[in-house]
Nucleic acid binder design. Structure first.
Lengths: 348, 348
DNA sequence: CTGAAAGCGCTTACAG
DNA sequence: CTGAAAGCGCTTACAG
């Protein structure tokens, strides 16, 4: 909300300068078409000249809209901030909100109590809508918001709440692409380290892995599948256990990039040359992917775009008062780097 | 700002229910002492029972305070979000703002134009104060805010703007501790990978490195110093170049944890056993430090606490209208793990 | 197309 | 200690 600093310019000042009523000035500034062209330009000029900035609090009080959107990071902070995903998403959201002159009000509930308070805070109309962000499913939060009639858009397919509006990447298709690529590179025994199956990213990327192998006529063997938790550590540990059980593995699809860093480190330690002994494909395509050793082949998902899309969906709901849930799935693509590309090289 | 949803409870409702005037109800709710005890409890009970939530927009319009604090992430998003530091800081800020019932309005300017717009936005009083967050020095942003009389607190010592209020970790002391520890472990040739010297963290940690060696009577040799950029990649590359020039290095202080990950990976690749051939101490002590291979000895800085402290400083300025700049330096401490501790083990 | 007027919900001098 | 009243800056029926 705007607080006028000493000597701030108000709508009345603009109206006076343009020699019109406040009503007319307001209409011009709101983009209302029904205003004479002469008045229009006079108001615009005056506003410009005086450096007029509307007072959000006053507008808000009158319109009963807050002009701000709540963004909730509903994930333990260690998870959120170890992973650049959330930051990129935030950046996309911030940019698109900004363009529409909406404020981004951030919430990072750290425990049950925080979530309770947040719940009632949001329910009492301090924000016009909510962008809900998480990995692990957070049904209670979503359900309560929805129950209170607050427009909400979620950053991933909720595993249970079926009627939510959400934006997600094509996890399944991306994973399938990763596997097809490994097959094309000649891999015969392809394993995967999946993400937690309680997340859409975890479940769907594993589904894509299975589907691609199925399609190739070689259904996945269960002992080639491990489930991690998206941390570097789990990537490292599961790679070790995977290779211990199945030394014949020559292709590895890791469903998250932090886990892939762990996998690379484990493979080095075990003396397996990447990509010659084991070809590796990751998911996320973070900026770091190009700088690992060797650089990681990865499935790119347009994270900033996902943030922008979430905003777009929410605003559509607000503007049109249209509560039909929408799901938007954004495409992914394969970025080939050295970790999977056996360009005629040989084992070390 | 609060927008009352249909049927929302207003102060008038509370006053009516408690059979007092709106003025009295307002005083009770604001914690104003000069109200009769009977009225007080009646108002409190009524507010509770009706589920009263104050309308922030109305309050704002009247008090000329926005009730929100702007948090600016003034760092290219790749940098911000590759590093958990900013996330933890945000979490600390969010929590303490929340306790004071202040809204956190987030800004992530992505280019010069964004910064310009942000500048005038903040200057027109949409927030009561600003928490400015960066690594690389951002004087222009700070200076302009300060010039406009907006209370600002910065998350690191600005290298040039001398009059800023800021919170920082004891970078120099922490770095010195790291070096003392390496000396105590018997290292004879200690090198460092510093952060960018245009950041307080970079410059001060290097100063601490020099100071500790000086104090031990063995001033730093210049070819044992490299300057990185806080990325994993630079850590890896500089470790390689360092060891190539000076194969006798047996102790390494890496001034940022992402760089330390790169250093570990490079040392593995070069066949140097950590800690026996080269002992490594890092800075930051992120949650990941305990899970690297081997686990990293690191200087812990209380990041969430820093966020809370920034908020505290800003609020003090707002409440007391006291513009005396304050600097708060929070202590760091050494967390010893295997990367530096030669517990009678031997080289692989 | 334009303006006079009401009113959003709150806080705070002011008077008693 | 308490209340009646004014007013923060804006938008929007309403009347013309």
């Amino acid at each position: 909300m705007t607080i006028q600093r000493p000597g701030a310019v108000t709508l009345s000042d603009v109206a006076a300068a343009a020699q019109v009523s406040r009503a007319t000035a307001s209409r011009v500034l709101a983009g209302d078409g029904r205003v004479g062209a002469g008045y229009r330009s006079a108001v615009l000029a005056a506003a410009q000249r005086l450096g007029y900035v509307p007072n959000r609090a006053a507008r808000s009080l009158r319109t009963r809209r807050s002009g701000s959107v709540g963004v909730v990071l509903a994930e333990p902070s260690a998870v959120v901030f170890g992973n650049p995903f959330f930051g990129q998403l935030l950046a996309g959201i911030a940019q698109s909100l900004n363009e529409r002159d909406l404020q981004l009000t951030l919430f990072i509930p750290q425990n049950e109590r925080d979530e309770q308070r947040l719940q009632s805070y949001l329910a009492s109309g301090h924000v016009d809508g909510v962008l809900l962000t998480f990995y692990q499913d957070r049904d209670p939060l979503y359900e309560q918001l929805a129950k209170n009639g607050i427009p909400v858009v979620v950053n991933a397919r909720p595993l249970q709440a079926s009627s939510a509006s959400y934006v997600d990447a094509d996890n399944e298709g991306g994973a399938a692409m990763a596997v097809e690529h490994l097959l094309a590179e000649g891999c015969r025994t392809i394993a995967t380290i999946a993400g937690p199956l309680g997340t859409s990213a975890g479940a769907e990327r594993l589904a894509g892995f299975r589907r691609a192998l199925q399609l190739a006529g070689r259904p996945a063997e269960e002992d080639l599948i491990r489930v991690g938790d998206f941390t570097t550590r789990s990537g490292r540990e599961l790679t070790v256990s995977l290779l211990a059980d199945r030394p014949d593995i020559d292709g590895l699809f890791v469903a998250g990039e932090l886990m892939a860093y762990g996998a690379l480190s484990a493979l080095h330690r075990m003396g397996r040359a990447v990509p010659w002994d084991v070809a590796v494909v990751s998911f996320d395509d973070l900026p770091e992917a190009a700088t690992t050793d060797p650089p990681l082949t990865s499935i790119h998902q347009p994270v900033e775009q996902m943030g922008r899309e979430m905003t777009r969906l929410l605003l559509a709901q607000l503007d049109d008062d249209d509560r039909i849930p929408r799901q938007v799935i954004l495409g992914t693509h394969l970025v080939v780097r050295e970790s999977s590309h056996r360009q005629g090289g040989s084992s070390a």
